[in-house]
């Protein structure tokens, strides 16, 4: 039996799982509920100017990249295994597709962060 390549994806899955367990709920609460409804937080919390300034900071860029990338790897890894759980055959093709989507999202995020500039 050859060694599984799973450790690579499991580490990314674990990183995303931990990060989303810590800050997933609060992120969704802020961007998806509080800000759209104008609840609790200042009105300009997610204004274009503030978000642009945020996305131009190098540390914030790193944070955005890590959040989107790890969430995607976590989600794709789990969904791939869920397909197997539901009896769908998931071979190499499915693996390439799912982790490919997560990789693509990571590259897109990195690209956009560069486009936004410093």
């Amino acid at each position: 039996m050859k060694p599984s390549s799973e450790p690579i994806f499991w580490m990314l899955f674990g990183g995303g799982g931990m990060l989303s367990a810590l800050i997933g709920p609060v992120l969704i609460l802020v961007t998806g509920i509080l800000v759209p409804f104008g609840l609790l937080l200042p009105q300009d919390t997610m204004s274009y100017d503030r978000m642009l300034a945020f996305a131009q900071h190098p540390l914030a860029k790193l944070a955005v990249l890590v959040v989107i990338s790890l969430f995607m790897f976590h989600g794709c890894h789990r969904t791939l295994h869920s397909l197997h759980d539901l009896g769908v055959h998931t071979g190499t093709g499915a693996k390439v597709a799912f982790y490919g989507v997560a990789t693509l999202a990571t590259l897109l995020t990195a690209g956009l962060l560069l486009v936004i500039g410093f």
Binding site: M1, K2, P3, S4, E6, P7, W10
Partner: peptide, 9 residues
């Protein structure tokens, strides 16, 4: 055994 797809993974 442990490192295989059919092991802990």
């Amino acid at each position: 055994v442990i490192n295989a797809d059919a092991g802990v993974w």
